[in-house]
Design a binder for these strands. Structure first.
Lengths: 227, 227
DNA sequence: GTTTGGTGTTAAAAAGTGTTAAATAAACCA
DNA sequence: TGGTTTATTTAACACTTTTTAACACCAAAC
């Protein structure tokens, strides 16, 4: 998990933040002012992200960020500030902030903003969750197009997989014909619509081992995967 | 410059935003509700970022983001909202927001947040120019065209290496045939396409020592290296 | 009921892909 | 330079995936 440099002069808030982030699985170092923050950064190092209070004794957050950026121009920085002054925000971004959050804030919101940034950096792990579905007795991996039940595995074609993925993402909800067609086929012409009907038939055959599953037609609307 | 999809139901704010962003050099399309936003996204396409109002008629911003993410799971999204409710913020990030901004906001602040996101995306480009890849049990050096596993080393040809490099740079993502052909062969003529198929076969043989790796065909689209 | 358009299904046609091997082109070297 | 090796392209054939066609059926509307 990611290693975070936290600098915050208010000891209460600092400890609170540190405990929260550690509970969420991050490794954190807490510095009590800008100077200590810089010291940690230069001596310990290895941080994946910095969360810096703007108003701190010894060295303010913006100056600290500037110096940190000299050493590592790519490291993500989030500023915390009591002021919601427009000028501060702008200056923060000019120093190269990735985000900026105004006190008082919720821990959860900070966490979400951190995750949004980390997600974009860690391109190595592109949504493994979104590609894995359990439907009835089946397991479906939309990344490798494999549909398995018990110990038998079945390879789906690209179109079969795309369509099944869409149905899984909206299970027990109706997926409109035109949306599916535009998404998977590019446009909702008559022939593409007929082609999609053929694929619905194919998917029904693939899923027939578990009778509790069914792909239901919503007349004139679209299809719905019941499970 | 980047192409932006803007959806905002308030025509005054919408036009204002559009003019501001265009003045800053962005290309923008303005949709007046969620449905039109989705239509633009699916039919026009090619956007680098989406700025979505949360409260809109026809289809709200969160639903729209969800559907947009089905088509492109990596595109940056910024939400605009009148409410500063914590729940809304959290939900926004769960749908995969990159940022979230509360009305009323300053145009300049929006611009800064957009730049912070775009900067982080573009930074990944130089990183991907790196010529050293770890794929499964293999190590691949695109500089020297050498592919090694355990202690045996294998020399690839120029074309083999260029193609494998492209697949590595986009691992677990689809690389379109025409893009690869134009990049490596210069144009996407029929014979070059057949030549590329031959090279895909060669690469599959080179990578066959690690069964967890596979070069998968996305029918009619291109190839994707799974690892 | 009848009409109209949407759906289910199968099969044939068309388009795309996997693979091997021969032909050409490019690089190498005595 | 000419011959040899290596890389790349073209050809050939088998096979897979997707689209189109055909016909039967169903659902809602009149």
């Amino acid at each position: 998990m990611a290693k975070i440099l936290l600098t915050e002069d208010d000891p209460n808030l600092g400890m609170l933040l540190q405990e929260y982030l550690q509970a969420k699985g991050f490794t954190t170092d807490l510095a009590k002012n800008g100077e200590e923050g810089l010291k940690f950064f230069l001596e310990k190092g290895g941080y994946d992200m910095c969360i810096l209070d703007v108003m701190m004794p010894k060295k303010d957050g913006f100056s600290l960020a500037k110096e940190i950026r000299m050493k590592d121009k790519d490291i993500p920085v989030i500023f915390l500030t009591a002021k919601s002054m427009k000028e501060d925000t702008i200056q923060g971004f000019k120093v190269g902030a990735d985000d900026y959050i105004t006190k008082p804030f919720s821990m959860e919101e900070l966490l979400m903003r951190m995750k949004a940034i980390l997600r974009r950096i860690n391109k190595q792990e592109p949504d493994t969750q979104i590609n894995n579905f359990k439907i009835g007795a089946y397991e479906f991996d939309a990344q490798t197009n494999s549909l398995s039940i018990n110990d038998s595995q079945n390879k789906l074609t690209t179109k079969e997989s795309e369509l099944l993925k869409l149905l899984c993402q909206n299970k027990n909800q109706s997926v409109s014909r035109s949306f599916a067609l535009k998404l998977i086929w590019g446009d909702d012409s008559y022939f593409n619509a007929r082609s999609m009907d053929v694929y619905i038939t194919k998917l029904r055959k693939h899923l027939k081992e578990d009778p509790s599953l069914q792909i239901m037609n919503m007349h004139g609307e679209g299809f719905k995967l019941i499970c």
